[in-house]
């Protein structure tokens, strides 16, 4: 087994991990700040892919789809928060969980009715078709683009949270919402924005995944499971955890695929089991957190 093959395999793992990171990030931010376990996250990922496809065909450019779909679906997420989820704050964690679970069925069936349940093609943007010669092997341009874009989004998100005034309010709001209200911050607006951000990230994941797999109404269900595994490994609510765990899962799947391909899907769950045994709160989670 030569080294170049292992490097190529690592690269596939990072590309795979990049999409996992983006989707898990939305899930973990919403849980960490709002205490809402969003079971509709996978369905919103799928809606994002359809929205991206629709907007791309409307404008004739993938790039508009990539830009507008997360914004539009993020706004839709804010509507969901405003109309539905808001009413359940302060109640048991099961209530928003059940709500979003039901919502995911409605969204999937809605897409089935509008677009049909067959898969539809999502063409790769023409600039990114084909492979790039890396000297040690060929790698799809589009997947390299996904890695770069996800890195940029992560950097922007980190800067926004750590270096801006809004980020400060958000972080403080996650720690102690009551004090924030006493200080005169409208915490409801912060939560609205956070939920919108989480949903927008799910949609971004969907648009990015579109050209890599076929787009169909069930594409979100597998993604939801993967995103949950990643957030559990990384620690529920931890942003750093989602990034590290996402890449870890992607690379593990990829390296296991090299040696025992039929085990590639199981490794993710094995990893989760091991982490839960050693560190039940996840790699970067806070012990005893009840949101």
């Amino acid at each position: 087994m030569d080294l170049s093959l292992i490097i190529m395999q690592l690269l596939s793992g990072i590309a795979l991990g990049a999409v996992l990171v983006i989707t898990a990030l939305g899930l973990t931010i919403v849980f960490g700040m709002l205490g809402v376990v969003n079971f509709a996250h996978g369905a919103l990922f799928m809606i994002g892919a359809y929205a991206g496809l629709y907007l791309a065909s409307l404008t004739g450019s993938f790039w508009w789809g990539l830009l507008l779909a997360p914004i539009l679906i993020g706004a839709f997420g804010m509507l969901i928060e405003f109309v539905l989820i808001r009413r359940l704050y302060g109640r048991s964690i099961d209530d928003p969980l059940l709500l979003t679970f039901g919502l995911s069925y409605i969204l999937v069936e809605g897409v089935r009715i509008v677009f049909g349940s067959d898969g539809i093609p999502f063409p790769t943007p023409p600039q990114l078709i084909g492979v790039l010669d890396l000297g040690i092997g060929f790698f799809p341009r589009y997947r390299l683009f996904v890695i770069v874009l996800v890195a940029v989004v992560l950097l922007a998100l980190w800067l926004a949270l750590e270096k801006t005034r809004i980020g400060l309010i958000v972080r403080a709001g996650a720690r102690d919402p009551v004090i924030m209200q006493v200080l005169g911050v409208d915490i409801g607006r912060v939560w609205l924005a956070i939920f919108g951000l989480g949903v927008g990230l799910a949609a971004l994941g969907g648009v990015l995944a579109g050209p890599m797999r076929s787009v169909n109404p069930e594409m979100g269900s597998l993604v939801l499971a993967e995103a949950f595994v990643v957030t559990v490994i990384g620690g529920l609510g931890s942003i750093v955890g989602a990034v590290v765990a996402g890449l870890m899962v992607g690379i593990s799947i990829s390296l296991v695929a090299l040696f025992a391909p039929e085990m590639a899907t199981i490794v993710m769950f094995a990893l989760m089991a091991v982490v839960l045994l050693i560190r039940p709160q996840g790699l970067f989670g806070v012990r005893g957190r009840t949101a």
Partner: peptide, 17 residues
């Protein structure tokens, strides 16, 4: 490969090799 997998990229480098 596992039945119902969504991603096959991890098998490609080895198949090409």
């Amino acid at each position: 490969h596992p039945f119902g997998a969504a991603d096959y990229s991890t098998f490609m480098p080895r198949l090409m090799s």
